[in-house]
């Protein structure tokens, strides 16, 4: 049953990477799907509690970082009687293997899910090479 527990839990970022945090909050690793298509790479990340104003996407060389800031909503009255999940920010960093067209990156957030569309630069796109028959 330990496994069940593990699979429903959010994964907390183990340690501050690169820099220490100034904001005292928990940081979780969002679960992602990464799908590569012919012309682009689609990153879908579950970040409940995040909207379009509170997520930052940065691209530095080939490293993409997504950071979602969560303002916890706590009921005005009462006290917690059952706590199964923690609330905090989200952060995750990816290294991209293909050259990305920085100008055309698109990010949208809907219902707490971030969709990041990274179009490949012309040079990195797969090209179909026609095979000719020898004369």
């Amino acid at each position: 049953m330990a496994k069940t527990e593990e699979t429903i839990q959010k994964k907390e970022v183990q340690q501050a990477e690169r820099a220490e945090r100034t904001r005292a909050t928990r940081v979780f690793t969002p679960e992602v799907d990464i799908i590569e298509r012919r012309d682009d790479i689609l990153v879908v990340a579950d970040m409940p509690g995040v909207d379009e104003t509170s997520v930052d996407v940065t691209l530095e060389k080939n490293v993409v970082t997504i950071y979602g800031k969560v303002q916890p909503e706590v009921p005005e009255r009462g006290r917690p009687i059952l706590v199964e999940y923690g609330i905090g920010d989200y952060e995750r960093t990816f290294t991209l293997s293909n050259e990305i067209d920085r100008e055309k990156i698109k990010a949208t957030v809907k219902n707490g899910t971030l969709r990041l569309l990274l179009p490949k630069a012309e040079a990195a796109k797969t090209r179909k090479i026609p095979v000719m028959a020898e004369p």
Partner: peptide, 9 residues
């Protein structure tokens, strides 16, 4: 605990 995780206040 089963999916989805819940909090109760």
């Amino acid at each position: 605990r089963e999916f989805p995780a819940i909090n109760i206040w």
